[in-house]
């Protein structure tokens, strides 16, 4: 469903990768691998449409993502380096607004449930400013529970998480894949999802 064809990425003067091909279908997990600075984040940002490939195309259901913008965006979700959590809003407000802006219908019960599931039940109404780094990332990750996106694009989703949250995210991923979802992600940690054999996508110049 998601397909990259002959992609090349140039940042500044460096060619990070070229002639990169990949395909991702229902139920699959694709792990992007490479050293620091090999273009992992750039590839994910390309898949989001933030970066235009120097060469090649990215297709969603056979259509270029630039052309199918609306339907593509409705079916994907991105978790980036910056967690998109506003310090001045509470955890609940953050999740609520994030969902509403993305066009996901939510009620306060669902929001509370999602945050509770990620172990934030005791700080629902605290401003995100007073949350720790890991807690903020959990607020951002709670979106994954409510979104109905088929494609998850996750950039280092496991950093700054404790053991319990790590387990939780991996089981979330497992459920998502089992339900026919797909995920493209980068991580430096080992991913253990029962019943899923991740495919690897190594990046090299």
């Amino acid at each position: 469903m998601l397909e990259g064809r002959d992609l090349a990425c140039v940042r500044g003067e460096r060619t990070l990768f070229s002639h990169l091909n990949f395909a991702l279908d229902a139920g699959e997990l694709l792990l992007v691998q490479g050293a620091n600075g090999s273009g992992k984040t750039s590839l994910l940002r390309m898949v989001c449409g933030f970066l235009t490939p120097e060469f090649g195309d990215i297709l969603w259901r056979g259509e270029k993502i630039g052309k199918a913008r609306e339907s593509y965006h409705a079916e994907m979700t991105y978790f980036g380096h910056a967690p998109a959590v506003k310090e001045d809003l509470t955890a609940t407000e953050n999740l609520d607004f994030a969902c509403r802006l993305a066009g996901i219908p939510v009620d306060s019960q669902a929001v509370k449930g999602a945050l509770g599931h990620l172990g934030l039940g005791h700080c629902l109404h605290l401003p995100a400013r007073s949350l720790s780094q890991g807690q903020r990332r959990r607020v951002a990750l709670s979106r994954l529970l409510l979104t109905r996106a088929r494609l998850w694009v996750l950039d280092e989703p496991l950093t700054a998480l404790d053991q319990a949250a790590l387990q939780l995210v991996q089981s979330l991923l497992g459920e998502h894949l089992q339900a026919g979802g797909m995920a493209l992600m980068t991580t430096h940690q080992a991913v253990m999802i029962p019943g899923v054999e991740p495919r690897l996508l190594p990046l090299k110049a």
Binding site: G49, F50, S71, H73, A74, Y78, A82, P83, V85, A102
Partner: peptide
């Protein structure tokens, strides 16, 4: 600026809504 710094801007661009709306 703050939306740019904390990643909210990326999330806004990724919403299905045409950018001119938001």
């Amino acid at each position: 600026a703050s939306d740019y710094a904390d990643g909210t801007l990326e999330q806004l661009i990724l919403t299905p809504t045409p950018p001119v709306v938001w």
